[in-house]
């Protein structure tokens, strides 16, 4: 079945390291996305026409453009056009954060806009100050709405990191390909074993996260 290749040399370890690269890129990008996304989302919810127009264009670009094209633009394009020498990993973190910040901002905007005015009013009429209203009433509701959604974004990012091998990053999928190539003669079936393992690794990385999202969603459904 081709699983025997895993036992050769340090192939199994290399695959895990490849997964590590993928996880590192996605987690750093997620953190940047959350920070930028929250700031941008709050700005958009202020409903200033200029910010809203900017955000719409930004969001459309992110949604329309395949991530791979963005990767190519940032990695190959900037080197020539701007004379910047970005590492492949930096380029992919920029692209993933660019994408994630837009999605996060949209989530934040939706969560903020989805809190009915009456929640602010009833808190105010109980004598809560503006700050207390946000602290005890509004923000907890927003966090509850957003955490499950942003966890889904994390799993999508982990999956999408498989694209970064196109700009030369040796992540789990690329490692798999290398192993298959190197063992083409001795284990012609390696492709199945290796890709099945890669599948399993992605599954193991994403499944607990999406279970957590499900759990929180259930716990917090209002």
């Amino acid at each position: 079945m081709g699983f025997e290749v895993l036992a050769k040399g340090n192939n199994a370890m290399r695959l895990l390291e490849g997964l590590g690269v993928a996880m590192r890129i996605s987690l750093i990008s997620v953190v940047i996305s959350i920070v930028l996304g929250v700031i941008l989302g709050v700005l958009v919810e202020l409903k200033r026409p200029f910010i809203m127009a900017f955000f719409r264009v930004y969001l459309e670009i992110v949604r329309i453009m395949p991530q791979m094209v963005l990767l190519f633009i940032v990695y190959f394009g900037t080197t020539k056009a701007l004379g910047l020498n970005l590492s492949a990993e930096a380029a992919s973190i920029i692209v993933f954060s660019f994408w994630g910040a837009a999605e996060m901002a949209d989530l934040v905007r939706g969560a903020l806009g989805g809190i009915p005015v009456i929640q602010y009013e009833s808190a105010a009429s109980l004598g809560l100050t503006r700050i207390q209203t946000y602290r005890y009433v509004i923000v907890p509701q927003i966090v509850r709405r957003m955490i499950p959604l942003s966890i889904n974004l994390i799993t999508r990012m982990i999956k999408t990191t498989s694209l970064v091998m196109m700009i030369g990053i040796v992540e789990v999928l690329k490692v798999g390909q290398q192993i298959i190539e190197a063992n083409r003669k001795s284990s012609p079936n390696a492709a199945f074993g290796i890709f099945a393992t890669v599948f399993l690794l992605y599954f193991l990385a994403c499944w607990p996260i999406s279970q957590l999202a499900k759990y929180l969603e259930k716990k917090w459904e209002n």
Binding site: P116, I118, Q119, E121, S122, S125, Q141, R144
Partner: peptide, 13 residues
């Protein structure tokens, strides 16, 4: 001043 509104306004969380 205590106020109760038409729409249910309890804090859902």
């Amino acid at each position: 001043i205590g106020m109760v509104f038409q729409s249910y306004d309890l804090f859902p969380h």
